[in-house]
Nucleic acid binder design. Sequence first.
DNA 1: CGACCTTTTGACCTTCGTCAACCTTAGTGG
DNA 2: CCACTAAGGTTGACGAAGGTCAAAAGGTCG
Lengths: 227, 227
Amino acid sequence: MSCLTLPLGLPLEDIPELHESQMFTLLRKGDALFKQGMPFTGLFLVRSGSLKQVSTTSTDESLVTAYAMPGDLVGLDAIGQNAYPGTTLALETTTVSVLPQERLSELGAQLPALRQQLCRNLSQEVHNERLMLRLLLRRTAEARLAYFFVAMSERFRRRGYSPLRFRLALSRIDIGSYLGLTVETVSRTLARFHKQELLRSSGRDFHILDLEALSRLAEASGRRGGA
Amino acid sequence: MSCLTLPLGLPLEDIPELHESQMFTLLRKGDALFKQGMPFTGLFLVRSGSLKQVSTTSTDESLVTAYAMPGDLVGLDAIGQNAYPGTTLALETTTVSVLPQERLSELGAQLPALRQQLCRNLSQEVHNERLMLRLLLRRTAEARLAYFFVAMSERFRRRGYSPLRFRLALSRIDIGSYLGLTVETVSRTLARFHKQELLRSSGRDFHILDLEALSRLAEASGRRGGA
DNA sequence: CGACCTTTTGACCTTCGTCAACCTTAGTGG
DNA sequence: CCACTAAGGTTGACGAAGGTCAAAAGGTCG
């Protein structure tokens, strides 16, 4: 879904911390990696499991704003205000590697390429989010969900997992929150997908039957609103 | 609306190019500052007038994705893919200062603070857009528009202009596109605001009568979808 | 002045949020 | 191991918000 948490271009191989296996942190389901508002202390690389970021707005709404899976870098959006902009919770048993801020600064000084890549990733992400969300803004529930699963599929594919069968630790409530829909609508739409033989879901396991058609749905159906 | 185009923290004072008055580029209404897909050549600082960024998606929809007014920095979202992600058009007679890429690199090397600030602005922006749009995703047309005008008001205020009376060169179509609404809905909602004595609009001139109430509207009315 | 665009207003109909009931899964303690 | 509970998920009925279509009224520019 988001390139922020998918920094494929980053020369992460150059960072020993992230590849030496002893420095893992273990989280159990429901544990917080960090809480909203905590001062920025560093970035995290997800090794196994998955997490969701929940941001609580000034009006006390909590929104799921990101989903991180193995290989994703978590915490980049904290750099701006030097604090984590949302609470990040483990959705299952999860391990992460830590990249402390000091080390990040050092590395930034040593490797200009890293800094540059980081900037690029951020810039890219700004545009992605803008476009994606503005697109979602004028899409039906059907298209939003189709888009969501196509994006997830792509994400799994890039990691070398099956793009057609995967498990999402997110609840329907979380998915709804992420897409701006109610649980009921998510549920009903998934039922429709099932009936149309597009996507079969059982609990948190998903099986895409017709990626082509889903992609078309994601792009096609929408409300108007030219420029 | 967006902090990307409002980089108040940037030490722009240190960049002579942006403050020597001879280096202006003049654009007439409808002129493109750059077109979508063009390779990144530099950033622009808006001196007078205003511009809109229009991004055309793979499905041929054009979405207004940003609005730039005097003081805004334009082009930051091009750094990621080394190309401008949208066409930027002058909405009226507009002047901009140019900050070419080479100069930007030089400056980045000389002033680490600049680079850092740039990164921070980008990171901040990622989070802002995420939150803002995800919030809009679950808001009624009324709340979206209220939010839009409150944000605009704030933006004018910061620049030293009146936060209650201002002119937006955007058409209703553009505003609709920006917020994911149809023209008709924008028009009808503005009519309602007028009737409720919240916001008076005549053409492209806007006069906020009750900022308090608008803010409340922006936050309150919404659909559900917890986390 | 006339062509064209933007804006407004009305009538209609779809989508999806809301409320409510019910079912299923997972976790707990006897 | 099973009963109980709670959370998550599904399904139906209903209504409101807003998209769609249509038409008319301003505005703007040639």
